[in-house]
Structure formats: structure tokens, C-alpha cells
């Protein structure tokens, strides 16, 4: 642009006084060089910052729209026009939500949550404004709402009188269908494939235990665990890990969802991704355990033995794009365990 400007000036200055004057070669060449240099610099910059710019673009556009919307809402005090303004605000709000949705692919989780939080605030300020300015509507909602809320009360009392099976509170958690171990200290705990049989397995409140699950749970819940070594066959859906400390976890799964966990090593095979939240000092290495029949179990669980995304960990608490989260690390190869203690390998029995 600047180069073009120079060119025009030159042409004008000379062009008006002397008719057939050419723009001097040297000026043209200099401009050409300048143009090329500028372009080169732009190219370099662009390739470096493609993702940053996208998210910058998102942030600045989103914030500009957000500010506009906030002003629109806060300046809406005229009862006559309020309904129309709030409609417009709602449409704008929905557009903004759509914009966020279209952008999620290149945003960090932190940016997504920030934007969602802003949307939530905007939405409540639209609602608040509507209630403040258009009280009639609010009344209408209220009356409908109260009649709705009153209804369930007598019904619940009825069910409380008759001991109806499965009424609220008597949740049908049948211990026979639940497979796992709870409240155990210092023991070796083993389950075989035929005990697990694609059911949900719960391991909770265990300390200093060695756990071996030679089968495929549908979901594995690991909760309140300290100083344990837990190994499990292929899990067809998720493994949930919550409040786990100073332990070693070894399993293949489709998804891993880790919360409130510290100082824990995970030897992982995951076919989609792992997430961590409120975790510190969690370290990952590829799954290395094996037992007779494990390949069949991969099949039963519907997991591909060839696809392992163990390094793809999303941290819900980590804000920066590009810089890795300090809450998890990769276990250095030299420190990885490759052979595990044999404990109750009864898979051969069957």
C-alpha cells in the first residue's frame, strides 16, 4: 500500500508539469524491491502466527461484539422500545454463540470457557433486563411456574405412603451387578474376565493394594486411592480417576477422565484422548502390560491395539496455547517400568 502511494505521487508530480515524462526507472525499481520485501516479511509472519491470529481474531471480534451487546442491554431503559431492543439483543446473543461454536476448533479450552462464561453473563443480563423492564411477562412466567412446582408435592407423598419399588431415594444399586473392591488396605485384589464381563467396575478407598483386573469393564471408576498399583484389561468406554494419590495405573481405554489426582503414573493406551482437571504431578507413559488373551479383550472392548494417543492430554486448568501444561509430564523412557509383578495370572485357567 505504501509503495503504491509513492508511485502515484511520483506520477502525479511529474505528470502534470511535463507531459511525456516517465517515472524514473530507479524509483520504480526501488518501489518494486520494497514491495517484495514487505510481502516476504508478511509471508514469514503469517506462517508463524496462523493459529495465534485466528484466536486473536476470535478474541477481538468476540469482545467487540460482547461490548456492543452489553451497551445495548444496559442502555435499554425505555419501556416502549425495550421489547424490540431485547429481541435484537437475543438475536445478537445467539449469533455470538454460533460464532463461538464455529471457532472452538482453534481455541484453547481456557478461551472456550472464558467465552462461555461471558455468554452466560450476557444471557443473564438479558433475562434480568427483561424482568426489570417488562414485568408483565415475568408475572406470566411466575404464575405458570408456581403451579408447576406445586404439582409434584402431593404425588411424592403418595409414593412415600405406598412403598413403591424404586421410588425416589431407593436407587436400584444392586451390589450383585457392581463388581469391584472398596475399603481395603494392604492386599492383593484380583478379578477374572468372567467376573467382569463388560460391567462397570468400581475401585474405591484402597490403600497399599495391588489390583489386577484380567477382563474388560464397560467403565472403570477409580476413586479415593492411595499408594496402589492398579492394572486392568481394555476398558470399552471411559476410565474415571478421582482423588488418587501416589499410585500407578495401567490400562487401555477409549477415554480417560482424571480429576483431583496427584503424584500418579499412568501407563496408558487411549484411543481418543485423556483429560485431566485439578491434577498435579500426573505422568504418562505408553501401556506396557500384557496377559494371555489381552488381544481378544481389545476386540471385545472395541479398542484398536494400534491406536494409542497417550500423549494427547487436555488439561482443563491450563490456560496458555502453545505452552504445555505443567500439571502433567511424560515419564522418561529410562524410568519406565517394562515388566510387572505376576499377580494371580489366572487367565490361563479358562
Amino acid at each position: 500500500m505504501a509503495a503504491l502511494g509513492v508511485e502515484m505521487n511520483v506520477a502525479q508530480d511529474d505528470g502534470e508539469t511535463n507531459t511525456a515524462v516517465k517515472v524514473p526507472e530507479s524509483v520504480l525499481r526501488r518501489d518494486q524491491a520494497r514491495l517484495e520485501e514487505a510481502e516476504r516479511r508478511r509471508d514469514v509472519k503469517q506462517s508463524q502466527t496462523v493459529t495465534e491470529e485466528k484466536s486473536d481474531f476470535f478474541t477481538s471480534t468476540f469482545n467487540a461484539e460482547k461490548t456492543q451487546l452489553e451497551e445495548m442491554i444496559s442502555s435499554c431503559n425505555d419501556r416502549e422500545k425495550a421489547a424490540k431492543t431485547l429481541e435484537e439483543a437475543t438475536v445478537k446473543f445467539q449469533q455470538l454463540q454460533k460464532f463461538l461454536n464455529d471457532s472452538v476448533r482453534f481455541l484453547t479450552q481456557y478461551e472456550i470457557r472464558q467465552a462461555q462464561e461471558s455468554l452466560q453473563k450476557l444471557q443473564s443480563s438479558i433475562t434480568d433486563k427483561r424482568e426489570e423492564i417488562l414485568p408483565k411477562k415475568k408475572f406470566a412466567f411466575r404464575s405458570r411456574n408456581t403451579s408447576k412446582q406445586q404439582q409434584p408435592t402431593p404425588i411424592q407423598q403418595q409414593t412415600a405412603d405406598k412403598p413403591a419399588p424404586g421410588s425416589v431415594g431407593t436407587v436400584v444399586v444392586d451390589a450383585a451387578d457392581q463388581c469391584g473392591f472398596s475399603n481395603v488396605d494392604n492386599q492383593v485384589l484380583v478379578r477374572q474376565a468372567e467376573e467382569i464381563q463388560q460391567r462397570d467396575v468400581l475401585l474405591s478407598h484402597l490403600t497399599h493394594c495391588k489390583v489386577r483386573l484380567y477382563g474388560c469393564p464397560s467403565t472403570l471408576h477409580i476413586k479415593n486411592i492411595r499408594s496402589c498399583e492398579i492394572m486392568c484389561g481394555p476398558v470399552s468406554s471411559s476410565v474415571f480417576v478421582d482423588q488418587c494419590t501416589d499410585s500407578t495405573l495401567v490400562f487401555p481405554c477409549q477415554q480417560l477422565r482424571t480429576h483431583n489426582t496427584t503424584a500418579t503414573r499412568v501407563y496408558l493406551h487411549v484411543t481418543s484422548r485423556a483429560i485431566i482437571e485439578d491434577c498435579q504431578g500426573v505422568s504418562f507413559a505408553p501401556f506396557t502390560w500384557t496377559y494371555p488373551g489381552i488381544l481378544d479383550h481389545f476386540k471385545v472392548a472395541g479398542l484398536s491395539p494400534d491406536r494409542n494417543n497417550w500423549t494427547e492430554v487436555d488439561d482443563f486448568n491450563w490456560l496458555a496455547a502453545g505452552t504445555p501444561s505443567p500439571n502433567w509430564t511424560v515419564i522418561p523412557e529410562s524410568e519406565r517400568i517394562c515388566s510387572w509383578d505376576f499377580v494371580g495370572t489366572a487367565a490361563e485357567q479358562s
Partner: peptide, 12 residues
């Protein structure tokens, strides 16, 4: 459906 990760935001 074999590569689905936990949803961090939302899908439309």
C-alpha cells in the same frame, strides 16, 4: 464413533 473424546465445549 470410535474416536470420540470427552466434549470440552459443545457440538452442533
Amino acid at each position: 464413533v470410535s474416536t470420540i473424546s470427552p466434549t470440552l465445549g459443545f457440538n452442533i
